[in-house]
């Protein structure tokens, strides 16, 4: 890929991200209906690991972090992984040989995979300790 095409794509993607975030900042997904509903939830009635994220993004962007986390606990994981990755990218730029990326550890992807799968199962169990996980 040529360098100018890359810059073009990244600029475009940043604009789309900012546009999407401002949409979620200004409109509450529980009140307006133009946000898409999860196809998995629509088809099965069960909650998937991503259910509640639109509401969570809306609440967190509006400063209501606690109720945002209640809609989807794993949004914390998503934000953590994203910021960790950005931090590592920056560090790799300045200390290319000293930086170890935990995301490239052999066990990391499978650990996260099982966290997400158990989360998926857990949030569909309608009993007391698990109901916290449901959106």
């Amino acid at each position: 890929m040529s360098k100018s095409l890359k810059i073009f794509i990244y600029t475009g993607l940043s604009f789309i991200t900012i546009a999407a975030l401002s949409l979620y900042l200004n409109y509450n997904p529980t009140e307006v209906s133009f946000f898409p509903q999860c196809p998995f939830h629509y088809a099965t009635g069960l909650h998937c690991p991503g259910c509640g994220t639109q509401r969570a993004i809306h609440d967190i962007l509006n400063g209501d972090i606690l109720s945002g986390i209640q809609h989807n606990v794993l949004i914390v994981l998503a934000i953590a992984v994203l910021s960790y990755n950005l931090f590592i990218l920056l560090r790799q730029h300045f200390h290319p040989h000293k930086t170890k990326n935990l995301l490239y550890h052999k066990a990391t992807p499978m650990t996260l995979f099982f966290i997400i799968i158990f989360y998926w199962i857990g949030r569909n169990i309608p009993i007391e300790p698990f109901t916290f996980l449901a959106p």
Partner: peptide, 21 residues
């Protein structure tokens, strides 16, 4: 991996899980 996690948690499709694998 980072984008796989993000896409799993912000969209609701099993495609993100495939990406993690």
């Amino acid at each position: 991996l980072a984008m796989a996690i993000i896409s799993t948690l912000i969209c609701c499709l099993p495609a993100g899980v495939v990406s993690i694998v």
